[in-house]
Computed example of a mutant assay.
Amino acid sequence: MAENVQKAVFFDVDDTLYDHLTPLREALQEALGLADDMPYEDIYNRFRYYSDLLSEEKNLSAVPEEEALADMRRRRFMLALAEFGIFLDEIEAEAAQTAYVNRQFQIQPFPGAMELIETLTHSGIRVGLITNGPAEHQQKKLKALQVERHIPENMIFVSGGVGYAKPDVRLFEHVNTITKTSPEHSYYIGDSWRNDVVGAIKAGWTVLWFNHRNAVAESDHRPHFTVHNYQEIADTLLSVAALQKV
């Protein structure tokens, strides 16, 4: 007889449920006039690196001060683009940030994302989201993605509303407590090494690193699986019996 446990699968949002590169590329082209042949994926990887690094240093993904958050958002543009020989002042960085925000609410889920969520749900798996960022800002993205059609509100956790931010283990512990799930039966899918892989591993969860941009590991932590598209995510979950009814 199958063990009577409740399995749960949680997804990150930014660049896991949807293509986070598209609004960034469009913003850089609009605000800074960058050419079509720029290495946007490499720029994006460094942009996310500095965004995660600066946010963790100042604990900005939990309940940030408005000016500190605005400063971080400018600095991530300045630091990332400097690596590619593009040096911005604060006014230019602010213009890029404004254009970027305007495009973040015109997003579509990755092909197969919502279909997988439906498959998991229909298979008896609890499905949720864990995302860093200000609560109102992230909720606007979720509305654009029409997440409410697929995931109940009580399974969505935004760091700005909880008070803890990835990679803080307390956020994952909070999710387990509220959803009455356990670390050993919780699976997490996310693209960010610093936030998703490190945080969920430390919390004792099974981690699928969604490395669809061929990023480089930033530490000695080892994700349980590395996947590159939603077909691989689905196949991996099946292979570890996450879709079996229990």
Rank of each mutant, 00 (worst) to 15 (best):
T98N: 13
L120W: 01
H150E: 06
P152V: 14
F87C: 13
R76Q: 14
F105L: 02
V63E: 12
L145M: 11
E66G: 01
H150Y: 15
L81C: 11
I130Q: 08
A95C: 06
I91R: 06
V101D: 06
T121N: 07
T119H: 07
V101A: 04
A70D: 15
E92Q: 15
L60D: 06
P111R: 08
Q104H: 04
T119M: 09
A144E: 00
P109D: 10
D71G: 02
K141S: 01
R126C: 03
E148I: 14
L142M: 11
G133S: 04
A144L: 03
H137C: 05
F105I: 06
A68D: 15
V101T: 08
S123E: 11
E148N: 11
S123Y: 08
L145I: 08
V147E: 10
Q108M: 12
E118P: 00
E136F: 04
L145V: 14
Q104K: 05
R73P: 00
E66L: 08
H150M: 11
A80S: 13
A144F: 03
Q104T: 10
K141L: 05
F87N: 15
G128H: 10
H122T: 14
M72F: 04
R75F: 06
R149F: 05
R74Q: 13
N102C: 12
A144V: 00
A135W: 06
F87G: 07
I107F: 04
G133I: 01
L60I: 12
H122P: 01
T131Q: 04
M114L: 15
E66S: 11
N154R: 10
K143V: 03
V127P: 00
R76G: 12
S123I: 09
Q146M: 05
R126Y: 02
V63P: 00
E65I: 10
V147R: 00
G133A: 03
T121F: 01
I125G: 02
A82C: 05
E92V: 13
E67R: 10
G112P: 02
I117K: 00
M78Y: 08
E67S: 12
A135P: 00
A80N: 09
A95K: 12
L116H: 08
R126N: 04
L81G: 04
V101R: 02
A99P: 01
S61V: 13
Y100Q: 04
V63K: 06
L79M: 15
R75C: 08
E65T: 14
L145P: 02
E118H: 06
L120N: 09
E148Q: 13
G124P: 04
K141G: 03
A80W: 03
A82P: 00
R75S: 13
I130E: 08
S123T: 13
G133V: 02
E65D: 14
I125N: 02
S61N: 15
P109Q: 11
E153V: 00
T98A: 11
P134N: 07
L120C: 08
A62F: 01
R103C: 03
E94Y: 07
L69F: 07
L69H: 02
K141I: 02
E136N: 11
A99S: 15
E66Q: 09
S61R: 10
Q97I: 09
